[in-house]
Structure formats: structure tokens, C-alpha cells
């Protein structure tokens, strides 16, 4: 969704940044874009050039005496650089390794200077708020979460794509309304929200109005705004394993609990999907997950266990099926498929 904004409306992002920078008297700005989004890079660079041409960037903007320079930096392939302190390290030319907070970047950030870091979507909202006023923005949304929110709806749902809805819309409205429901009328199982460190929200919460607070209650996050719909052909243990393996690979490797703890979580889930899991493994997932959440240095490690923890909470039966009954209800985990022939041979 950030990509779409940068490609489709780069000036809204730029304008939001210029206004925000002016507000805090910053003189240097960076837009950190993944190199995997070449068109976004191209468009935002062009937008910057255009802004310079019109005197909206550079020295003495519109004769105000205020100067601002914005530089585009392409990410070099490290998920952790989405974490603000790792991003700062990357901008400074370092390995994208996170730094402890406090001090927060707003106090000591890029090269020790106060630094504000915001998401593309946030900046894109700024011009609107300035123009229409805060009240207009707050007209939509819920008590705690104002405005609209863009979700990237994907997975096993009929209509995929970007969806902008007011805060407080329910999952059912998005998946079965805008999303057009499940393909082949399969059963809705869960929606994974917030990217690799988000959580899985089960069918029981289909009528949950989505905002920052409600998601937190069910163990998910707004995060990247990704909404991946899953039906009953998706194995929830496999999904948890998939997410933790992603985080384990993307860990910067600096702090021990994230570097090593995510690997242990992954290995435990591997065992479970291979039919070698035990009930103790479930306890271990929870207790280790908690240590990783509480002791990791940055957001990546602190949230990496979320998918494991949220699926354990909402889909414990499916874990028990893997561990106790040695079956995979979704039929995904190959080691647990009922292959009579094999069993017969062994006997």
C-alpha cells in the first residue's frame, strides 16, 4: 500500500514530509524505499525533482527562509530496516542493526540528531489534515483510531487489492463485502493481519471492528496493513512456522533472544509439523515466545513470536491435533497425512 502511494501519489507523501519537517525545523529528510519497488523509487525521485523546480524543496523554500533537502535511499534488502533504529543505522552507512531505546530517535537519532520517523501513509495523510482540518479527518474512524485505513487485501479471497475503509470497519465487511467473500465458497478460517509479526484473527472475531486497540486485544497489529485471508486449506501451524522462519532469517543477529530464540521457535514448530511434537513443546513455545517478546532489543524480535502466540491462543485445537493426534486437519503437513500404505508397510 505504501508502494502504491509512492507510485501513484508521490507528491502527497512529499508534501506531508515537507510540512512535517517544517513543523520540527528539520533540514534533512530521507525517504527509505525498498529497492524491490523500482517504480516507486523512480516516481518519488521525479516528484522530488519537480518539487525542487517549483521551489518547494531546496534552499529558501517559497522565500520562507526555510530550507529542506530530501534524499531517496534505496533499501538493500533487509526487512529489519523497517525498524526505526535499524533504518537509521542503514542511513548512516551501517549494517542495519537495531539500537536500544531510549534514547528514542526523536531525542537522539540520525547521527545523534533528533529524528522523526513516519510511515508513508502517515505522511500522505498530513496534507489532507492540514487542508481539511483535524476534525474533518476525525469524522471517520473510531474513538481511539481516527480516519481511514488502507489495507492490502490478499490471500484466499475473491477480490484482492488495496482497500481503503474507515477505521472501525469489521473484518466481515472487508472480507465478505469489499473482498467478495471466499473463493469456491470455502470456509473462512482466519485473517492474518499486520505482516510477519502480526497475528491471526479467527472466524470468531469476524465482526470485530478494526482499530488499533481492538486488534491488540485479539493479539494482532495494524502493522503493514496487510490482510491475508486464509481458508480451511491453510494449516495454522504451518503458517506460524512460516512467519517465525521469516523473522529468524531477517533478524539482524545482534541480540541473543531474537537471533537464537526465533530459531528455537522455528525448530520446535518444525518438529510439530513433522509429527514429532509433544505437549511440552507447546508450553515451551509459549514460555520462550514470551522471553523473546520481552527481552529482544527491537520491534522485530519483540513481535516475532506474535504469530506463534496468537495462533496458540486462537487455534490451540489445531496444535493439539498435530501434537496429540498426529494429524494435520488442513492436510498441509505432509508428514502427518494419513498414508495407509506407508503405515501398513511399517507394521
Amino acid at each position: 500500500m505504501d508502494r502504491a502511494l509512492l507510485e501513484g501519489d508521490p507528491h502527497s507523501v512529499l508534501e506531508g514530509m515537507i510540512i512535517s519537517a517544517y513543523a520540527i525545523e528539520a533540514t534533512k529528510g530521507f525517504i527509505y524505499v525498498r529497492a524491490e519497488y523500482p517504480i516507486a523509487v523512480l516516481h518519488i525521485r521525479k516528484a522530488i525533482d519537480e518539487a525542487h523546480e517549483r521551489g518547494l524543496l531546496g534552499d529558501n523554500i517559497l522565500g520562507s527562509g526555510y530550507s529542506l533537502d530530501i534524499e531517496v535511499r534505496e533499501g538493500a534488502g533487509a526487512f529489519v530496516c523497517g525498524e526505526e533504529t535499524a533504518m537509521i543505522a542503514s542511513l548512516e552507512g551501517e549494517r542495519g542493526m537495531a539500537r536500544p531505546k531510549p534514547p528514542y530517535p526523536a531525542v537522539r537519532g540520525y547521527h545523534g540528531e533528533p529524528t522523526i520517523i513516519n510511515n508513508v501513509e502517515t505522511f500522505a495523510n498530513v496534507p489532507l489534515i492540514i487542508e481539511e482540518g483535524g476534525a474533518a479527518f476525525a469524522e471517520s474512524g473510531t474513538e481511539g483510531s481516527k480516519g481511514t485505513k488502507i489495507f492490502a487485501l490478499a490471500g484466499q479471497v475473491n477480490n484482492t487489492g488495496l482497500v481503503e475503509v474507515p477505521m472501525g470497519a469489521t473484518i466481515r465487511e472487508i472480507v465478505f463485502g469489499v473482498g467478495g467473500g471466499m473463493p469456491r465458497n470455502r470456509e473462512f478460517k482466519a485473517v492474518q493481519m499486520g505482516g510477519p509479526s502480526g497475528g491471526c484473527v479467527p472466524a470468531a472475531h469476524l465482526d470485530l471492528p478494526i482499530d488499533y486497540d481492538s486488534l491488540k486485544e485479539v493479539g494482532a497489529i495494524m502493522g503493514s496493513g496487510g490482510m491475508i485471508v486464509m481458508d480451511n486449506t491453510t494449516c495454522i501451524v504451518d503458517i506460524a512456522r512460516y512467519f517465525i522462519s521469516f523473522c529468524a532469517e531477517e533478524s539482524c543477529g545482534l541480540c541473543a533472544p531474537c537471533r537464537l530464540g526465533t530459531v528455537q521457535l522455528e525448530e520446535t514448530l518444525n518438529r510439530i509439523t513433522e509429527g514429532k511434537g509433544t505437549l511440552e513443546d507447546l508450553d515451551k513455545l509459549e514460555s520462550l515466545g514470551e522471553v523473546v517478546q520481552q527481552t529482544s532489543l527491537c520491534g522485530l524480535g519483540q513481535t516475532a513470536p506474535n504469530p506463534v502466540m496468537s495462533t496458540l491462543r486462537h487455534f490451540r485445537d489445531e496444535y493439539l491435533a498435530h501434537v496429540v493426534d498426529k494429524t494435520c486437519p488442513a492436510g498441509v503437513c505432509t508428514a502427518l497425512l494419513p498414508v495407509e500404505a506407508t503405515v501398513g508397510k511399517e507394521k
Partner: peptide, 25 residues
């Protein structure tokens, strides 16, 4: 200090979560 090993985390009243004592002023 870089706060990498996480062993020196301590509890500080009024602060969210655990903080590394090697980096906390």
C-alpha cells in the same frame, strides 16, 4: 554500549517493559 546480550535488562518503575541497564541513563 549496544545492549546486545540482553542479560543486563532490569525493571524500572514507570517504564514500559524491560530495559538494558547498560544503555539506560
Amino acid at each position: 554500549p549496544v545492549g546486545a546480550c540482553r542479560l543486563c535488562v532490569v525493571e524500572i518503575e514507570g517504564e514500559r517493559g524491560l530495559l538494558t541497564s547498560c544503555t539506560m541513563e
